Amino acid sequence: MRLRFHHVLGRGAYGEVVLAEDTVTCQRYAVKVIRKRALLAEVELADVMVEHRVLQLTSGSRFLVHAEFAFQTKMHVLLGLEYLSCGDLDQLLQSKGPLDVNSARFYAAEMVCGIQHLHTMGIIHRDLKPENILVAETGHVKITDFGLALENMYGDRTANDYAGTEGYVAPEMDAREEYNAAVDWFSFGVIINQMITGERKYHHKLFNESTSGAKSIILQLLKRNPAKRLGVNRDIRKHRFFQQIDWISVESLRVPPPHILESSKPEHLEPFHLDAVEAAEAKDFRPSPKDQAMFRGFSFSNLKTLLDTSSKTTGASSPTEPP
């Protein structure tokens, strides 16, 4: 395998996110290493497969994280995402404090491009929040984490199941009512409010005359009636908050970012060895052919030769495709 695994970037309920490198091109990836046993036991396979499908579609936008490859071993599925090394918008806000309006406008404009691209593909994110807005070394931002996304949400289709993070959830979802893509625009309004005021909850006293355009767009995004909410009701790009924005330049990444951040590094570099993780998992779990069939079709690659594995990799960590 041309992938060399380095260290653990983070841990979740179903596995780790690991920094990996293509030994030929030196390109780095954030690889989600997810235990099949956990997915099957918790009946969360559907969410992972949704994210797997969405990530293959997001490559059409510069403002959405996308997957470069996916493969599986006997015990794990692995999803290789582009690696953004400068943390997320939440960390940026913690280090910089509330942003000036121009900086907030820049990040908001790039998020608009990503959100609109998702909605054009019939996808509702459902968990927009600063932690899910990653910052690249270039200073531009990308939306990530599509585990709660809904697909095929075109036209008048609605949903009613609850998803998201407290404080960013739209009132219609909170009330367990039918909802559509307007829920993402509500979350986006909370994010703009948080960027400018440092608070998730809107309060008019936190705004002054110089932030009147920001106040206006936030109020229109936070409308309780989703049919009247900006983004669904009217073209958000034409709001006066964005009147200084050249959208062609934004889409082509020609607008200089307000902040260039240093790459973030984990405090404790925990090494990762796929063979060892695979062997440890095999001690307690023996997936049946029926179990393995659940993961049929998982593997793909947007890279021509990265997963050159069948003749070069041996042992437990050999990527497989269930029969």
Rank of each mutant, 00 (worst) to 15 (best):
R35T: 08
F295N: 03
R2V: 06
I217W: 00
Q94R: 12
Q116L: 09
K290S: 15
D145T: 02
T165F: 03
A170F: 04
D22N: 05
F186V: 01
M1V: 08
S187G: 05
G167N: 06
K142W: 04
M195K: 05
N102Q: 12
I191D: 02
G297C: 09
M195T: 01
Q220S: 12
E172Q: 06
L219R: 10
G198P: 02
N180G: 12
S210M: 11
H117F: 15
V277L: 14
L92T: 01
H125K: 11
F146Y: 09
H203A: 11
L39Y: 02
F241A: 03
Q243W: 13
G167L: 09
R2G: 00
T211S: 11
S264L: 14
T313K: 13
R105L: 05
T58K: 03
I124N: 03
Q244V: 08
K265Y: 15
V50S: 07
K228S: 13
L78F: 03
V112L: 03
N225I: 02
Q292P: 00
H6D: 14
A30C: 03
V18H: 05
H204E: 14
G167M: 12
K205P: 00
V33L: 09
I196H: 00
K205F: 15
S85E: 12
L303R: 06
G80E: 00
S249A: 14
E177H: 12
D127H: 01
L253D: 04
R35L: 08
V48S: 04
E172H: 02
F186R: 00
F285S: 06
G87M: 07
V33S: 10
P257C: 08
M195S: 02
K265N: 13
A280P: 07
S288Q: 11
N208G: 12
H117V: 04
Q27G: 01
E177D: 14
G315E: 10
E137K: 06
I248G: 15
T25P: 01
P266C: 04
A136Y: 04
Q244R: 09
D156C: 07
K238C: 08
V141A: 04
L93N: 07
G297I: 01
P257A: 14
A293M: 13
K215I: 03
L89I: 03
T138H: 11
A227N: 15
A109E: 02
T313M: 12
S263F: 09
E267D: 13
K238V: 06
S85P: 01
Y83W: 06
K238Q: 15
T314D: 15
D161L: 11
